[in-house]
Each structure stands twice: as C-alpha cells, then as structure tokens.
Computed example of a mutant assay.
Amino acid sequence: MSLNGKYALGIFFTFVLLAAVMLYVFPLIYMITGIKTLTPVNFFYTRIALWTVLGLIFLYNLFIEKNNFLIWKEKKYPVLFYIKAIVALYFICAFGGAFINLIVQLLTQEGMSKKLAQISSVFKNNYALIIFICFTAGAVEELLMRGYIQPRIEKIYNNPSVGIIVSAALFGILHSTYGTIGQVLVPFFIGAVFALFYKKYSNIKILILCHFTYDFVSMMIMNFIDIKHLSAF
C-alpha cells in the first residue's frame, strides 16, 4: 500500500473511532459500570475513551505509516506570539460562534442542546473534571483533527483548501451528536479557523491551548449561569 493509501486508511479509522465514541460510549459505559445515569465518574470514563482513540492512532502511525505523527514540522515562536495568537483565536471563535448561533436562533428558533444541558449538570462545581474535560478536548481533538487529519488530506489531494475544508467538516459532523444545528455549524467554523491557523503557522500547541481556553471559559459560564437562562445568554 502506498503512503497516501495508508494516510487515507488512517483518516478513515480516526473518524470511525471518534464517531463510535461519540455515538456509543455512553451506553457502553452504562453497561460496564451498571450505573444507568450520567455521573461524573461515567463521564470521566468517556474522556478516557477519547484518549484511547488517540493512542490507537499513534500506534497506527508508528507501525503502519512509519512516519512522523505531525508531518508538518512544529514551528517555534516567542512567548508573546503564543499569547497574542491564543487571545486572537479565542475572540475570533467566540464572536464568530456567537454570530452563527444568533443566525441559527433567528432562522430555526432552535433551543439548547438537551445533551449539553444534561452534561452541564454533571460537572457543576466539579473543577477538576472541568479542567480534565477541557484538556482532553484541546489535546485529543487538535492532535487528531488538525495535527493528524488535515495535513494528510492535503497530501492525498495535493490541495491545502481540501485539507482545511474536509478537516473542519469532519470536526463539525462529529459534534452533531449534540443534536442541534448550532452544535454542527459553530464547530465547523472553529475547525476552519484553527485549520487556517495551523496551515499558516504550523504550531499545534497554540491550538491546543486555545481550544482548552475556549472550552474552559464556556464550561465555567455554564457552571455559574442557571441552565434555563443559558440559551438566551
């Protein structure tokens, strides 16, 4: 099999494994633990499942692709650049996402995701779990969606735009399990912004930190604001 063929298979495995986790990990955890409700412990196990997917793809890369996991060499920047980049990316994603949500609300009268509302009750005032959730999302999703998938799609099609659009689309699709249009369009927008940044600056650490910051701020807002007021906010 050619290297591009191995890349294509790895991308397929990555998406299938992530989709399986998003769709089936909760029923599986309920069956294993015998606890049929969403608890902090059960939710913790679902995040471990995401780290397991990352580990499997690392092994695939190591033994099948036999190439660097990050095929784009990481570029180094001064600390001030990190700070400016994280702040800029955060506000672009925050205001862009808010605008998209506003348009969706106006066009569809869509309510808040029931799954998101259920999850928010689990981590209420559980700051250790919040940090772990945000770190997992930042590290696993960026390493897989931007670090792994995006450059390989670009290599296969020899087209940077395809890598950016497809990786952002897959990122949005994976969030469709939250059950709302906004939870697909906003991640697609954020995925596109992050993919453009990664193509230009080739630094996954900045994206991990920004993703962590974005999720952490969002979850802290959910932690302190009554859930029934969250959609309006």
Rank of each mutant, 00 (worst) to 15 (best):
V21S: 06
F81N: 11
N4C: 06
T33A: 12
I11C: 07
E110V: 13
L62E: 10
N101K: 07
N101S: 12
S176K: 10
K36L: 06
L62K: 15
M1V: 15
K124F: 03
V79L: 14
F58T: 00
L54D: 00
A169K: 12
V79C: 07
Q118H: 09
M219K: 05
E65I: 13
D215G: 12
A98W: 14
Y148D: 00
G182W: 09
N68W: 03
N101T: 10
K205E: 04
L207S: 03
F188G: 10
H211C: 03
I64G: 10
N67D: 14
F63P: 09
I86G: 05
V186G: 08
L80K: 15
Y148K: 06
L38G: 07
N223D: 08
I165G: 04
I204Y: 07
E110D: 08
D215V: 11
I190W: 09
W51G: 05
Y77T: 13
L230T: 09
F26P: 03
N4M: 11
A98K: 15
Y90M: 00
L129N: 07
N158T: 13
A137P: 11
F44A: 15
H175K: 02
A169N: 05
I131F: 10
L174F: 04
M145D: 04
A19H: 05
R47E: 09
L3S: 09
A195D: 11
L185H: 06
A94W: 04
W51C: 04
V184C: 07
D215Q: 12
P160H: 14
K228F: 00
L80T: 15
K66L: 09
A192T: 10
